[in-house]
Every structure is written in structure tokens, then in C-alpha cells.
Amino acid sequence: MDLLQIAERSFSSRLFVGTGKYPSPSVMVQAHAASGAEVVTVAVRRVNISDRSKESLLDYIDTSKYMLLPNTAGCYTADEAVRTARLGREAGLSNWVKLEVIGDEKTLLPDNVALLEATRTLAREGFVVLPYTSDDPVICRKLEEAGAAAVMPLGAPIGSGLGIQNANNIRIIKDSARVPVIVDAGVGTASDAALAMELGADGVLMNTAIAGAQHPVAMAEAMKLAVQAGRLAFQSGRIPRRMYATASSPVEGMVGR
């Protein structure tokens, strides 16, 4: 069995999915099932005090089947992210956090200086920290040294659907990391997820690519298959790239020659 091991837990699915931006809760439930994911990300936000009528997200997630991974999305400082992570731990009763510290509103690219500080703080407090970071091998190494349980380099900006922008960096990150590498953000379609896995990533995390697709449930299944196919291809050892052709059929025994 090809299990993904992060901290003390192991997963048979290498696809992590989000819970945001679905057209309806029932589509989300079906998409989650179709994705085969075992981990779903959630955001931590203030309860609406004046309007308590809204349904809870947790009405739609079977927590005996899915592990909740609270994020610190929308946090712009290390303090804010640490505070949000602590609240997420209390709300979800798990010490795992998808750590985000955003550095820029337009690109939503991470502030890696603050991220490193928050990773250090939370790892010291016993959190299993999964930081969302740049596709930069040096910062990934520093996050690992700071106690990250996995590193989650972006493929492209959040929600952009641009696919893996720097494939070589993902390979280098994977080559040097001693913790799992999860490509987080930027996936647009199934081939992007497959590519991430072919490059050697241990998993892929996505939200918009599924939730924003015209048919989220079908796309969720496509992503499941893509991650499996990419993983298998990676493990199978691809052929080297060559400039010229090499014939697949015998060159001897040609008729009339």
C-alpha cells in the first residue's frame, strides 16, 4: 500500500480538497466523495451573532470520514495566523494547521518571513504545521528546519488555475525535502495535478479547480484519477527525453527490402 505519511498519520489518498466556493453544500458533499480525499481544509471565521439562522459547514462534513484541516487564510501577520491556528485547534480538536500568512492582496502570495516565524511558534506549541509557501527550495528547507511537518509550495497563485509555473523548483524542493511536499494552489485542471505528482510531489491540495469547475463532482473525480495516474507514472520511472525518434518496431525484416 502506497500511503502518504505526515507526522503520525497516514493517508491512502494524496489529494487534499477545500470546502470553499461550491455552488451548494450538496455539490460539495458529492465532490468530496468523488475526490476520494481524506483531508478537507476549512477556514476559521467569526460566528455571525446577529443572524444565527445560517447552517453550519459541519452539517455537511462527516468528520468520521474526513479529517478537518483548519487554515489561517486571510491572515497577514504571524500573530494573526498563530491566533487563528489556536482557535482552529480548539474548534476542531486537532493540532493540525494549514498555515497561511499572506503578503500581498492581489497575488495572495505568502509572506515567507512571517510564515517562518509563525511555523516556529506553532511547532513549538505542538502543532502539526503544514505551511503554504512559495515554490522556493530555500524557504522550504528553512520551514522544515523550523519544524514544519510538510511543506506546501504553490504551483501558481491561489485560485489562478495557471498550473505548475516552475516545475523545476518543485522537483528541487522534493529532491531536498525530508518531509512530504504537497503542491498547494494553482491547479486548473487534471493535467496540472498529474504533473505535480509526476514531478515527485507527495500530494496535491486544491479548492477552486474543483469547486469552480462547471461540473465540480466530475472534476473531483478527474482530479482523483489524475493524482493517482501522476503518482503511478512517477513511481514507474519515465523514459528520458530525446531530441530524435527511436523506432518502436523492428528495423529488420521489412517487406521488399
Binding site: K21, A43, V44, V47, S56, E90
Partner: peptide, 28 residues
């Protein structure tokens, strides 16, 4: 400071205190 769930019954909120109540919502 986060209030651990078992301490909800014994933690007293006074005049001027700051309380945040959060839950999980959809996110990526």
C-alpha cells in the same frame, strides 16, 4: 486567550472583556 472547552463553565466574562466566537466556514 483561547478558552478550552472544559473551561467554558468556569470562565467568567466581565464588563469590557473582549470575546471572539469563531466557527468553521468553507475555505481552501
Amino acid at each position: 486567550a483561547v478558552v478550552k472547552r472544559p473551561l467554558f463553565q468556569s470562565t467568567i466574562v466581565y464588563e469590557g472583556d473582549a470575546i471572539e466566537i469563531v466557527n468553521f466556514v468553507g475555505g481552501g
